[in-house]
Simulated assay, not measured.
Amino acid sequence: MPADANPYGDIFGGWLMSQMDMAAGLVAARHAKGRAVTIAVDAMQFHRPVVVGDEVSVYARLVRVGRTSMTIEVESWCRDRHGEQLCKVTEARFVFVAIDEARRPRAISAG
C-alpha cells in the first residue's frame, strides 16, 4: 500500500523484512510447539525493489535445529499485478529461540 512506500513508490525494506519475520515465526512456533522469538537476522539481501501494487509471496523453511534455537531460511518473491513472471526480491536467514512462560530459553522437544 502507498503508506508502506517511499516517495518513489518502492516498498520499505523494513515492511518486507517484517513480513519475512512473521513467516519465519510461524515456522519456528510450529516446530517449537510454542512461543519462539527472533534473536538474529543473518545475510539479509535485497535483490530488487518491490513497488506498490506488486503481489508479494514469502516462503520459509526450517534448515537447522539446535537445543533451543532454530534457523529458518526465508525468501520473498514478487509478481507484477498484471503479469505472471515471478522474481526473487529478498532472502535471509532468521534465528529464533524457543521460550517458556517466563520468557527464558527452553529446549525444543525432539518429537
Rank of each mutant, 00 (worst) to 15 (best):
M1R: 00
P2Q: 04
A5E: 02
N6S: 07
G9D: 02
G9W: 04
G9Y: 06
G9N: 01
D10A: 12
I11A: 03
I11W: 04
F12A: 01
G13F: 01
W15F: 05
W15E: 02
L16M: 07
L16W: 01
M17Y: 14
Q19C: 06
M20W: 05
M20Q: 08
M20T: 08
M20N: 04
M20F: 09
L26A: 13
V27E: 04
V27L: 03
A29F: 00
A29P: 00
R30Y: 00
R30W: 00
H31L: 09
A32E: 10
K33E: 15
R35C: 08
A36M: 11
I39V: 15
A40Q: 14
V41W: 06
A43T: 07
M44E: 06
Q45A: 15
F46R: 13
H47E: 11
H47Q: 11
R48D: 10
P49W: 07
V50Q: 08
V50Y: 05
V51T: 13
V52A: 10
V52Y: 09
G53I: 01
G53F: 03
D54S: 06
E55V: 12
S57E: 11
S57Q: 10
Y59N: 15
A60F: 10
A60Y: 11
L62F: 06
G66D: 07
R67C: 04
S69D: 13
T71W: 10
I72K: 14
I72G: 15
E73H: 14
E73C: 05
E73T: 14
E73P: 06
V74L: 12
E75I: 15
E75M: 05
W77A: 00
R79L: 08
R79S: 10
D80N: 10
H82Y: 08
G83T: 04
E84P: 02
Q85V: 11
L86W: 13
L86Q: 04
K88M: 10
K88N: 08
K88D: 02
F94K: 14
F94N: 08
F94H: 14
F94M: 14
F94P: 15
V95Y: 06
V95K: 13
F96L: 03
A98V: 12
I99H: 04
I99C: 06
D100P: 00
E101I: 05
E101M: 03
E101T: 04
A102I: 00
R103P: 00
R103F: 09
P105W: 00
A107W: 05
S109P: 04
G111V: 03
G111W: 02
